[in-house]
């Protein structure tokens, strides 16, 4: 707080001061959200404007896929085993019948776990990567150099990452779905002795599940690179600034994924499943 503000706050009554303190919480949140929306809308404006650097889009897609494929597969593989372990023991205790487990599990993977957990992992892997990359470019003045050469940083840096992320989030979510279902099937078969053919049961799948799956993957794929780019572009100072930007990227992106998950799950429930 500067001297000026301190004097102002000191003159307030206790109640007023308490209200003023709310600003300390809300002002940074509001500025950050508006900043993210600004970067997002500019990115969309440039995404529909020529020229788009398609070669860079392909390269970024390769980076995203190459960097996170093993990571997503390991995490989702373990998640699949955990979920079947937990639900298997509970189902055995309460319901006593494990035949319907596979169908329910597949439905839950589509609606919730495959897209969301993949997105959380991409928020950590790709989100920090983008923020660190763009953040280092900001603190070493490379972004200024781009602007001096009339290359708009959002068009030049953010748009290729956005397009690549939209495609790769969907692809990786599909991979994640298969891996998690596979490892789940493995545990169901070895621990609970559920037949593979019984476990692989698509009877509960509806169009709604597919739509929610795609909607979630699309929303996450758009949100993560934009939030991470905004964090990177707002970096200042030296290595400390890059560190702060990357931290900000993971936190904001994971939080955004959770909020979107809540909203889209609610929408899905109201439109398709109730």
């Amino acid at each position: 707080m500067t001297k000026h503000t301190q004097a102002y706050v000191a003159a307030l009554s206790p109640t007023q001061r308490r209200i003023a303190q709310l600003g300390v919480i809300f002002v940074p949140i509001v500025t950050q959200v508006t900043e993210i929306l600004r970067v997002g809308s500019l990115a969309f404006y440039y995404a529909f404007k020529k020229p788009i650097r398609w070669r860079e889009v392909v390269q970024q897609s390769f980076f995203i896929g190459n960097r996170s494929l093993a990571f997503v597969m390991i995490v989702l593989g373990f998640l699949g085993m955990i979920l079947i372990f937990q639900s298997g023991f509970q189902a055995k205790r309460i319901v006593g019948d494990l035949q319907g487990m596979g169908a329910l599990y597949l439905q839950l993977l589509f609606r919730e776990f495959a897209p969301t957990v993949t997105a959380l992992m991409l928020a950590t892997r790709v989100g920090t990567g983008i923020a660190a990359e763009i953040g280092s470019m900001v603190v070493t003045e490379q972004v200024d150099a781009l602007r001096m050469n009339n290359a708009e940083p959002i068009q030049y840096l953010v748009v290729p990452r956005l397009l690549a992320s939209i495609v790769m989030t969907f692809v990786l979510s599909c991979v994640a779905l298969c891996v998690a279902f596979g490892t789940g099937m493995f545990v169901a078969n070895t621990v609970f002795e559920v037949n593979v053919a019984t476990f692989y049961n698509t009877s509960l799948l509806e169009w709604g599940d597919l739509i929610i799956f795609s909607l979630k993957a699309l929303a996450y794929g758009i949100t993560i690179p934009i939030i991470a780019s905004q964090a990177g572009l707002s970096a200042f100072g030296g290595s400390e600034g890059v560190g702060t930007a990357t931290t900000m990227a993971v936190v904001n992106a994971s939080l955004a994924v959770t909020i979107l998950d809540f909203v889209l799950s609610g929408v899905g429930y109201i439109f398709f499943f109730s």
Partner: peptide, 10 residues
Amino acid sequence: MLFQNYALFD
């Protein structure tokens, strides 16, 4: 413009 921190695209 010549930048202080080089600003070469790495």
